[in-house]
């Protein structure tokens, strides 16, 4: 059984919900009120995961934290096709790792700008967060543009989406909630359309379904 420590508005928790939906795996919600009660920093939650961040899953007794690592775990253990986290091609596995790291790096930039605008995190330097996000989005748009030109629809050079796409999608598409417009990143806008069209896709508040 999978328990997911979850919060509706968390872009990181949504990564787990989205992959679980795409895998068609059943799960149980353990709701953590991130805002305003900050239950992710309460002793009971810290006892489970000392890092105090969402999401965390408990999968048959195994505790897994870190949003990207949760995706790795879920795909490794619950995807019999192996397509979401390809591990039989070292070059491809390495590409996935690169974009998982890229996704994590969106936390202090695009995600922080959204927390500033939406959840009253006013101690965040939002100009710096937006500037950093634009630098990253420029890198992402360029990567996706050249991938498209070569006939690839996804972040990695494989003909189906991977956990790299699932990891990057939430903070990228929610960036607009942090005052970061996606209009000047046309390849990113096309890629977000493709992600929304994956069979089994689910949305979250702030993300419109296809």
């Amino acid at each position: 059984m999978i328990e997911l420590y979850d919060y509706e508005l968390s872009s990181d928790a949504y990564k787990a919900r989205l992959l679980l939906a795409l895998l068609g795996v059943a799960w149980t919600q353990r709701y953590v009120e991130y805002y305003p009660r900050r239950q992710h920093r309460a002793p009971e939650f810290l006892a489970l995961s000392p890092r105090g961040e969402l999401p965390v899953i408990v999968d048959d007794g195994t505790i897994v934290d870190d949003a990207q690592n949760v995706l790795v775990h879920l795909a490794s253990r619950h995807d019999p096709t192996g397509r979401w986290y390809p591990q039989n091609d070292a070059g491809l596995t390495s590409q996935v790792s690169t974009w998982l790291a890229f996704a994590a790096a969106l936390t202090p930039t695009a995600s922080a700008a959204r927390l500033h605008d939406g959840l009253l995190y006013h101690h965040i330097d939002v100009d710096e967060a937006r500037r950093g996000a634009h630098e990253q989005l420029a890198v992402l748009d360029e990567h996706l543009w050249f991938n498209e030109d070569a006939g690839w629809s996804w972040l990695c050079t494989v003909d189906q989406p991977t956990i790299a796409d699932i990891a990057c999608f939430p903070d990228v598409i929610l960036a607009e909630e942090g005052g970061i417009e996606l209009r000047t990143y046309p390849a990113i806008r096309r890629w977000t359309d493709r992600v929304k069209a994956i069979p089994g896709f689910i949305a979250m508040p702030g993300i419109f379904p296809a």
Partner: peptide, 20 residues
């Protein structure tokens, strides 16, 4: 925009002289 970037079933979004 480049023609080929207006892909099927996509709504492309540009701005010209302040008009979205």
């Amino acid at each position: 925009i480049r023609s080929e970037e207006i892909v099927p079933r996509h709504i492309a979004f540009v701005q010209l002289l302040d008009e979205e």
